[in-house]
Amino acid sequence: MEEWLEYLKRDRLLGSLGEETLRRKLLPLATERCYTAGEELLRPQQTENRLGLILEGRVQILQLFPSGASSLMAVLRQGGLLGVDLVFTRTLSSPYHAVASEDTRVLYLPATPLTRPDPLTPEECLAVMRRALMILSHDNMKKHYRLTILSQRGLRQRVLAYLSMQAARRKSASFSIPFSREELASYLCVNRSALSHELRQMEQDGLIRFQKNRFTLLTPPE
């Protein structure tokens, strides 16, 4: 349980409550579950009233379509929170799939005690709600950026829009992206082979350099 406490202390939603509150009021409510690669954590229409803190591993948030195609919405890594966008809704119903892309450990906490003054005080509940609002606002901006990227008509335009946003975020022309090549293709809603071909062509055209998930944006040649 001491390991759990250390993760909770670093959590962006609950860490501000302080070690004593976490230890006495929330830690006794926590449970851990392990998932193997490919195992589903959430499915559409599933009701979820728990927060999941990723202790180890990697979780993909996916939108699946009747055709069998999928679109990657986000990737959660160690320290990521699963369900913060669900537990404060009226229906508590998931609109997406959450799948472990590798062996994963998740620490679950029931959400109800975080939103009602028992065992937390009203002041502590308010602090959690404020932090949740900040997290949801940040996630909403990420969705806005993705819509901006997907509004680009051509594959090259989508790639450049995504890479430009990553460069601006890191304030550097050289940066690593958080996606594998397959995940990037899914995030951009394009074919993986077409993406790989376009990246090579962009490198030949002097627009980028890349090695695996490490990219450098170059000034286009005159």
Rank of each mutant, 00 (worst) to 15 (best):
M1N: 12
E2L: 14
W4E: 04
L8S: 09
R10W: 00
R12I: 14
L17E: 03
G18Y: 14
E19G: 11
K25V: 01
K25P: 01
P28Y: 06
P28R: 10
E32K: 13
R33W: 11
C34R: 13
C34N: 06
Y35A: 05
G38V: 03
L41F: 04
Q45N: 15
E48T: 05
N49Y: 02
L55N: 01
E56M: 00
R58D: 09
I61G: 00
Q63R: 11
S67V: 05
A69Y: 01
A69K: 11
L72N: 05
A74G: 00
A74R: 11
A74L: 03
A74F: 06
L76P: 00
G83V: 04
D85W: 05
V87I: 15
V87Y: 09
F88K: 00
R90Y: 07
T91P: 00
S93T: 14
S94A: 15
Y96A: 08
H97E: 08
A98H: 04
V99K: 04
E102T: 13
R105M: 05
V106M: 02
L107H: 01
Y108A: 01
A111D: 08
T112C: 00
L114K: 03
L114A: 04
P119C: 06
L120V: 09
T121P: 05
P122L: 07
C125I: 14
A127M: 15
R130D: 10
R130F: 11
M134P: 00
L136F: 00
N140S: 13
K142R: 14
H144C: 06
H144L: 15
R146F: 02
I149L: 03
I149G: 02
I149Y: 08
L150Y: 11
L150H: 10
G154H: 11
L155P: 03
L155Q: 09
R156Q: 15
R156D: 09
R158V: 01
Y162K: 03
A167M: 08
R170V: 12
K171S: 12
S176N: 15
S176Y: 15
S180Y: 07
S180P: 04
E182T: 12
L184Y: 09
A185V: 13
S186Q: 14
S186K: 12
Y187S: 09
N191M: 10
L195H: 09
E198D: 12
E198V: 07
R200K: 14
R200W: 04
Q201L: 11
Q201T: 08
M202T: 02
E203W: 00
E203A: 14
Q204D: 13
Q211M: 06
Q211N: 13
Q211F: 10
K212C: 01
R214I: 03
T216I: 03
T219R: 15
P220K: 06
